[in-house]
Amino acid sequence: MFGTGILKGLGVTFRHFVTTFIDDIKYLGKKRDLEVFQHKQSLANVGLVTVEYPDEKLAVPERFRFVPFLVTYNQDDPEYAGKDWCTSCGICAKVCPPQCIWIVRGTDPNTGRPKPEPEQFYIDTDICMNCGYCAEYCPFDAIKMDHNYELASYDRTTAHIHDKKRLSKEIRYWQSIAPTTAAEEMEARKGYDHTDVQKARKKAGLTPSRVGPTSDKAPEPEVVAAPAAAATAEAPAAPVAVQASPAPADKAVEAAATDKPPGPGNWVKRGKRWINLDAPAEVKKRSRGPGEE
């Protein structure tokens, strides 16, 4: 009969209309928390799928690629504080398909010879295509793809060519946004430290690589038992970060002064904060990395 097809189609639309309320009924009176969110974003959901963006954001997966950043040692690293991982070998600039990476190789002021450190490092985000080749081909794990996509600006002339200061982020930042990958890379490097640092340490008669950002002078026994980043990889993606209460400021300053974390134990950086997964009660506040804004 003419019209049955249309009615059938309208039935589907009506069904969709009704099912959008199913979750609302199911979770009536409950807070819109992580559990609700995870259900809504799962395949099992038949109701509303909307991510209420500024109030809840769909976190991006580990392999997500956005504008690259440069890895440095942590600012509070007892041995190599803030040292660049980049050796200015130029491979990222060579592989970059749209050629948006610019590197000024560093030179030793005394000898005038090139030294393995970038003098300047620029990425033109107006050209970058977020392909991830720089991170893929970097032999030193020194350039990584960022997860922070909230970069919108009012002015591109000043904001869109990222210089070294803006690009540099601490290694702990990378460990926190991509723990699994960071752990795999650490395994491949055979230790926490940069491969060149490992060579230098071997020459100096030290252990080739530390297991985390620890001091060489007083290695603590627990550290050997539980390598920080390896444990991080197994850590569940718990919402601890979002819900953990911030520590009092004075305590945080104190913590920064003692220069201890993230080792020993299961230290994970969540957002701006450091969290010990073994003892979730203790939360220490750290200053941000120089470029992390």
Binding site: P54, L58, V60, T125, Y149, E150, A152, Y154, R156, A159
Partner: peptide, 22 residues
């Protein structure tokens, strides 16, 4: 004249929303 620039290639929907909020 451009009011807001949203970087990314392509910006994810959330990045665009961020730009619109800006």
């Amino acid at each position: 004249p451009v009011d807001v620039y949203v970087p990314g290639c392509p910006p994810t929907p959330q990045a665009l929303l961020h730009g619109l909020i800006m």
